[in-house]
Simulated scan of single mutants.
Amino acid sequence: MNRKRPIRARVSDEEYQLLQSLRSRKPAQNPPKQPLSLGDRVSDGVAAVMGSWRFIIIQSVILAFWVILNVVGVIQHWDPYPFILLNLMLSFQAAYAAPIMMMSQNRQATIDQVDAKHDYEVNQKAELEIELLQDKLNWLREEEIVELKTLLIEQQQIILRLETLLVERLQK
């Protein structure tokens, strides 16, 4: 009995080709990492800084300090209430921060898609390998059953011979 035949008969040519290509790849091999461009590194750095509690706390302290100095400023109010200059600076910061963070998120989404594809291929390989193992176990079980049946028939024949010998001796 051909051991590859059961799985080959149950999977499509595409699945079988995928299994063969996945088998040639080492199991722990991860998808290759693309080198980061300067823009990627900058956007990741900005996103990491602006997305941290440290940045939020420092910015909150600076904003509070700005407001307090301009409300109770003894010397000069450089940005009196309603803090038009502060609003302009925060709008300027938001105008640049949002697209930079989006670039970082888009790059991360691309990395996640590559990782998800790799995970899917690994899962497919695992599924097909499990099917192959199940087929091999079934084949071994069938072989064992055939062997046990053969042994059982031989034992029955031996028992019959022994019975006939015993009957012949008792008759003598």
Rank of each mutant, 00 (worst) to 15 (best):
residue 88 L to Y: 14
residue 40 D to C: 05
residue 34 Q to E: 10
residue 22 L to G: 04
residue 99 P to S: 03
residue 70 N to T: 05
residue 82 P to T: 08
residue 53 W to P: 06
residue 90 L to K: 01
residue 89 M to N: 14
residue 86 L to G: 01
residue 6 P to M: 00
residue 18 L to P: 00
residue 169 R to F: 03
residue 85 L to I: 15
residue 78 W to F: 15
residue 119 D to Q: 13
residue 115 D to H: 03
residue 42 V to L: 13
residue 69 L to R: 09
residue 78 W to Q: 14
residue 141 R to A: 13
residue 62 I to H: 07
residue 26 K to Q: 15
residue 137 L to G: 06
residue 24 S to W: 11
residue 28 A to E: 14
residue 24 S to I: 14
residue 149 K to P: 00
residue 117 K to M: 12
residue 102 M to A: 09
residue 66 W to V: 03
residue 103 M to L: 07
residue 33 K to D: 05
residue 76 Q to I: 15
residue 82 P to W: 12
residue 136 K to R: 11
residue 15 E to I: 08
residue 10 R to H: 04
residue 123 N to G: 12
residue 5 R to K: 08
residue 36 L to I: 02
residue 142 E to S: 10
residue 45 G to P: 02
residue 121 E to C: 02
residue 39 G to H: 04
residue 4 K to L: 10
residue 125 K to E: 03
residue 143 E to S: 14
residue 58 I to Q: 10
residue 9 A to W: 08
residue 147 E to I: 06
residue 142 E to D: 13
residue 170 L to I: 06
residue 84 I to M: 13
residue 166 L to W: 08
residue 58 I to T: 13
residue 26 K to I: 01
residue 43 S to G: 10
residue 134 Q to D: 14
residue 160 L to W: 06
residue 52 S to D: 06
residue 40 D to L: 04
residue 67 V to D: 08
residue 144 E to P: 01
residue 16 Y to E: 06
residue 86 L to V: 02
residue 168 E to I: 03
residue 165 L to D: 12
residue 142 E to I: 04
residue 9 A to G: 07
residue 15 E to T: 06
residue 103 M to N: 04
residue 101 M to V: 12
residue 16 Y to A: 02
residue 29 Q to K: 04
residue 109 A to Y: 05
residue 80 P to L: 12
residue 164 T to P: 00
residue 133 L to Q: 10
residue 29 Q to Y: 00
residue 40 D to W: 01
residue 9 A to M: 09
residue 122 V to C: 02
residue 116 A to W: 01
residue 5 R to S: 11
residue 108 Q to V: 03
residue 162 L to G: 07
residue 168 E to N: 05
residue 2 N to D: 13
residue 79 D to C: 03
residue 169 R to S: 05
residue 67 V to H: 03
residue 30 N to A: 14
residue 31 P to G: 00
residue 111 I to T: 03
residue 43 S to Y: 02
residue 148 L to S: 07
residue 123 N to E: 11
residue 15 E to F: 07
residue 44 D to Y: 13
residue 145 I to W: 12
residue 56 I to C: 03
residue 161 R to S: 08
residue 80 P to K: 07
residue 134 Q to R: 09
residue 30 N to P: 01
residue 167 V to P: 01
residue 108 Q to R: 14
residue 151 L to R: 13
residue 30 N to M: 11
residue 155 Q to I: 13
residue 117 K to E: 10
residue 150 T to R: 10
